[in-house]
Amino acid sequence: MILAIASGKGGTGKTTLSTNLASYISEKQKVTLADLDVEEPNSGLFLDVEKDLEKDMFKKIPEWKESECILCGKCQEWCKFNCIQVLGDEVMIFPEFCHTCHMCVDLCPGSALSFKDVRMGRLSKSHKGNLTFVESRLNIGEEQAVSLISQTIDYTENYADEDELIIVDAPPGAACPVMEVVDKSDFVILVTEPTPFGLNDLKIAVETMRVLNREFAVVINRYGIGNDDVISYCKAENIDILAKINNDRKLAELYSKGNLLYKHSENLREQLDLIIEKLHLLK
């Protein structure tokens, strides 16, 4: 089962929940955590894991063969992403915009374009006890996060045992990267905070879940601040609130140092137990 932890807005506690839930479960059974926030992967800061392997991740981009090219300029015309420009007698390719749609390579009249692999990021796998941690990091300037996310999910699914729980830390927002993660998940937890900003962003996230027709529930972080509007909204919309994690200055201090929190907070352990029980995460 793939359980995604997502949120509309950044900074609500998505990474805190992912890292603590995964570590807590790993005290009892095997579990894998994948950080799919490939533009800003931060989960690793909180996990004291041992690295097993690192590998480059690639995407396919067209490569130009001068000898075969008739300089017809079709490829530049076809490419909707501006990654091919014909400059005088040379065809220049800009790999970070390429969506690998295959059109230029397949249709080039002179067969002057073929695929080659270029590095788009780096995946690492590490572990601590029962916890496996997979992280991918997108190269700065690379724009096609979706392909790296999808490859990382495939890698994680292949690596994990068939019945193993996989928790994924999704990117923030409601754009293509998070759609890709949600599309490949079985269940989604939306993390929010009980403030007007939190509620506004939660509504957008809920809309996304409904468009993708995905089962989801809410976890409220920093419970105690703000107001009850998030709770009323969830009630009115028939959305399950799995847990409420108390706002606690002590936890904020521990977080700021990069510590896992569940070992220091009974409330957090209780709330994690609630999530585990309601979603039947333990075998």
């Binding site: 076809w78 909707k80 969506h99 690998t100 749609c101 295959h102 059109m103 759609m179 468009v211 993708l212």
Partner: peptide
């Protein structure tokens, strides 16, 4: 057959969230 993004269903409906607009 040509779509790399699985954006066209067997019933020939376009999934606008998957379509990347490449125009292939």
């Amino acid at each position: 057959d040509t779509c790399q993004f699985d954006a066209i269903s067997p019933e020939f409906n376009i999934n606008q969230y998957k379509c990347e607009g490449c125009s292939y």
